[in-house]
Every structure is written in C-alpha cells, then in structure tokens.
Design a protein around this nucleic acid. Structure first.
Lengths: 218, 218
DNA sequence: GCATGTGAATGGATTCACAGCT
DNA sequence: AGCTGTGAATCCATTCACATGC
C-alpha cells in the first residue's frame, strides 16, 4: 500500500511510530542488527500485529522470514517522522515550566533545536536558561521566527494568555504549536496545535486511587 | 445505571471528566448557575451526547428540560475524580524538569500537594525549589512516604533509572506513579503508572509538518 | 417545549489468522 | 520453517435519535 497521495494516518499510529523509534534506537545501541515484530512486541510490551500494520502504512520495510533491519527501519522512521532534518523551536513563557522545557534534553536533540524563549515581562529579558538559551522580548517574535526559520512554538504561559499567544504565533508564521496551557485552543486552518495537559494525568491517577479505596475491582 | 459494583470506565472518559471540571470551574467564576450539555458542547468544542453519556456513568446529575446545576455538577465531578481530599505527592529527580514540576501550579492546588523532591545526588540535597519545596535524600523515601501518607510519585529521572525508581517507590508503599521518563515501565499489579512522553508530541508535530511539505492533503 | 439519559447505529482501532514470500 | 503484510473479525468509542421526565 505504501504512502503518498492519501492521508489517513491517525495520531495514535504516529505516536506509536515514535515509540518504535525509541525501541530501535535502544536495540541499535545494544548492537542488535535485526528484529522481528514479535520480538519487538515481547521486549517492549506491544502487539506484533499492530507494529506490522503501523509500519505497513509507510512502505514495506521488512523481509519475510527474517524481520526488520534495525538500522534501516530506524532511518525509515526518522524520515517518516520528518526529523531527518532539524526543526527550530521557540518557547513562549519563561516561567518555571518554560525554562525547564528549554533545557529538557528530549527537546534539544535529534531533529529539534530550541532557539530562544520569549517573554513579555521586562525583568526576564536578557536572562538565559542554565543551558544558555536566551530569553528575548515577546515583541521580537516575528523577526525571530523569520530570521531563524522557526517552525514550532511551545506555549508555556498561563491559560488566560494562551489563545492570544497562539494567534500571535500563527501571525508570525509559526506552523505548529505545542500547548501546555490547560485550555482548548481554537485552531486556525493551517496551524496545528497539540495540547498537553499535565494536571489531567494526576486527576486520572486520583480517580484510580479513589476507586481502589471504594473497592471497585480495578 | 450509576456507578458502584462495576468498573468499565475508560481513561478517555475520565480524561474528559477533567476537562468538564475545568469548564465548569470557569463557568462558575463567570457566575453562571445552570448549563445544558448543548451549551457546554458549543462553548468548549465538545460533543453534547458524549458529555451526557460520560456523566451518566456516575449518576443522574441533570434535570430534564433544564440542564445541569453548575456548582452541583462541579462538586460531583470533584468527588468522582477523588480530589475532594488532598493527595500527597513526591517527585523523584531534582533536575530541571523535577524542579519545574514541583512549582507547577496545577500540581499544588485543588486536591494535590507536593511534599518534597527526592534525589540521589548529594549536591542537590538540602536545596529547595523556588516555591520552597525541599530536596531530600533518596534514601529517606520509605520514611517520607509513610510519615506523610504520600500516595503518588512523579518520576523525573533519566530513562535508565526510571524502572528502578518505580520499583523502589512501589516498595515504599506508593500507590500510583506519573512517569516522565521516555520508557515503558513494567507495571506491578497494585501500582498504577501513567506515562507522559513530551518528545512524542513534538515528533507528532514534525510528522505533520513533513506531510504538509510533501503536499499531503492535511 | 426542552434537555436529559440511553438503546441502537455508526465509525475506528485493534487483533486474529492466514496467504505469500524468503 | 519463519515472519511479513493484510483482509476479515472483533472490540471499543462516538454519535444519532428518541422515549422519558421536568
């Protein structure tokens, strides 16, 4: 079937591609050359049919009777996910969360590069994160995005300002946004948002604890 | 139908309960007394049938012909989610992410309280976050959990140590874990884990950008 | 009349199971 | 023999549409 023409790939599928990529990277560091969907499934608690089906959306990467070549599949996934070149990022909001994200290792390696933080608070301008990512004035966003070919914006401001920040980033030419504010962003046609709501995860754990207390089966 | 006996509530449903709670809290601050599933759906981009179905799992909270009483529904949700009393939390790993999470407002209000951070690095012990949450030695985990009735652990250590930290927390009597390390934790029967993988979200945006470049429809 | 609560219908995603290749 | 790639079967979630009750 392979790819091209059609879009029909769910977010669930692409999320799993990222997981597979992690697994392969690990196997590669272990020096493993080849892996079957079955072995992947066992080692990383996945489902082998699902692995095969997910991969099959993008091409025929395996060899029947053998399995997948670890390095080759890995680079196919890197390409499929579009991280075979570096994408530049700006973080809006130089509070605790923004600063921590700026130095978060997963955000500054293998295809992503955080160029700067932006903040409207004059007291924060001119500082920088521990890893030396500078805090620049919010007003300079358009210039920054243009000059540094920034494609992704991360919103780490309070909920009240999040929508306005999104709109301003979109106007500045940002193409995709990762939102940490606990609010449903009203999306424009060409600027994709993905939201991460950290508190929801805690509440879900709390729900689980509560049910255990009440003697519900699981 | 209501609740009791059976468990059958999906995580998707409980996640939405959290969302509804946010919406209701907002409406309450706006002074609104009553709301219909239809209005909720319109204002917050949800689906009204789904709202009704989700709520119906836990009781009959509405009044036909009228809708839901905002405050009453809100406190029903608070109770359903088990955040009508405070649950204590410890964060393991006093690096950038751990420190930021310790001060993250969503984690220290309305049902959650972060007691301390734990770290194995002697240089970090004795410090505290900006909001004054102390960093204690990893060895004191069991005592800390017992003395402070800590129910939830947050893992903010590198991937290599995450599984060991999970196991140690479980041994110390922790009941639920929120994991930020990019690894699939092997779960024990009685200690629930929820994992948040921040990088996956970026990769998903990258995938989207890549497809746009390649001219795929969306 | 109006909005809830819910069975029935639809739509997706996951899993099964096997044909086909190496 | 072994493992991929995939149609068919199953499972789960969402949406529809209406009977029920205020």
């Amino acid at each position: 079937m392979a790819n091209s023409e059609r879009e029909a790939i769910s977010e669930l599928t692409t999320g799993r591609l990222s997981v597979y990529l992690r697994c392969l990277t690990f196997l590669e560091t272990q020096g493993q050359r080849t892996v079957s969907s079955h072995e992947l499934a066992e080692r990383f608690h996945l489902n082998s049919a699902q692995i095969r089906k997910d991969l099959a959306c993008f091409g025929e990467f395996g060899t029947r009777g053998v399995g997948y070549d670890v390095s080759r599949l890995k680079s196919n996934l890197v390409e499929t996910l579009g991280i075979d070149r570096t994408r530049n990022i700006v973080i809006v909001g130089a509070g605790n969360l923004g600063m921590a994200l700026a130095d978060y290792s997963g955000f500054n390696t293998n295809g992503f590069h955080i160029v700067a933080l932006l903040d409207a608070d004059p007291d924060k301008i001119g500082r920088s994160s521990r890893a030396d990512i500078p805090v620049l004035p919010w007003e300079r966003r358009a210039e920054l995005v243009r000059r540094n070919r920034i494609e992704i914006g991360i919103i780490a401001v309070p909920a009240e300002s999040a929508q306005a920040v999104y709109d301003a980033l979109a106007d500045a030419g940002i193409q995709a946004v990762l939102n940490f504010a606990p609010i449903q962003i009203k999306m424009r046609d060409h600027v994709k948002v993905k939201s991460v709501d950290l508190r929801i995860n805690l509440e879900s754990l709390s729900f689980h604890l509560k049910n255990r207390e009440d003697g519900v089966i699981v």
